[in-house]
């Protein structure tokens, strides 16, 4: 009886130690993944011709559209959006031919990417590796994506944009 009680106590200690280790490890690794100082990056606004807007860190637009970027008065923007941090604010006034803006999920759905691949890294050709937060706010115009393919070997989803001629 005594032995059983001792075993139970040591089992409790073991569980306690394991829980402690897991709580120590989990936050650090998750923190490492989400560390992304957005206050040092610019903010972009995608503005459709109907006046609706979407805020993003990674705007995917056509080449000619990139040249139409306009810097905004950052003070008035950050007063309006105190929850957003950033170095500067620029807006893309999109052409009237653009009717829809796509999120990363929309892009993957449009190109019928199966759920089993959606845990793969996302690589946008021409862009450096994007952080999780950047990907979450990614915003593309409906006519800017040429293809989305799967690289099973590298476990990556490759997004290719349309190149202007």
């Amino acid at each position: 009886m005594k032995t059983k009680s001792k075993n139970i106590i040591s089992l409790k200690y073991l569980i306690l130690i394991l829980v402690s280790i897991s709580t120590l490890v989990t936050p650090i690794s998750s923190k490492a993944q989400t560390v992304d100082d957005l206050s040092k990056k610019p903010v972009f606004i995608m503005r459709l011709s109907d006046g609706s807007e979407k805020i993003t860190r990674i705007p995917l637009v056509s080449d000619s559209q990139y040249k139409m970027m306009i810097q905004l008065n950052r003070d008035s923007f950050f007063l309006k959006h105190p929850e957003i941090k950033g170095t500067s604010v620029a807006v893309f006034p999109l052409k009237s031919t653009v009717k829809k803006l796509l999120s990363l999920n929309d892009i993957l759905n449009n190109f019928k990417i199966e759920n089993r691949y959606r845990k793969f890294d996302i690589k946008i050709i021409g862009f450096p590796k994007l952080t999780k937060t950047e990907l979450e706010t990614l915003c593309a115009t409906e006519n800017s994506i040429q293809s989305v393919s799967i690289d099973k070997e590298k476990e990556a989803i490759i997004i290719k944009m349309i190149l202007d001629k």
Binding site: D63, G126, M161
Partner: peptide, 18 residues
Amino acid sequence: TKSQDQSTGTKSFLLMTD
């Protein structure tokens, strides 16, 4: 200076952003 598979617009955008 753009890479082979990179558009001028994308490279310009990244130069202006980063």
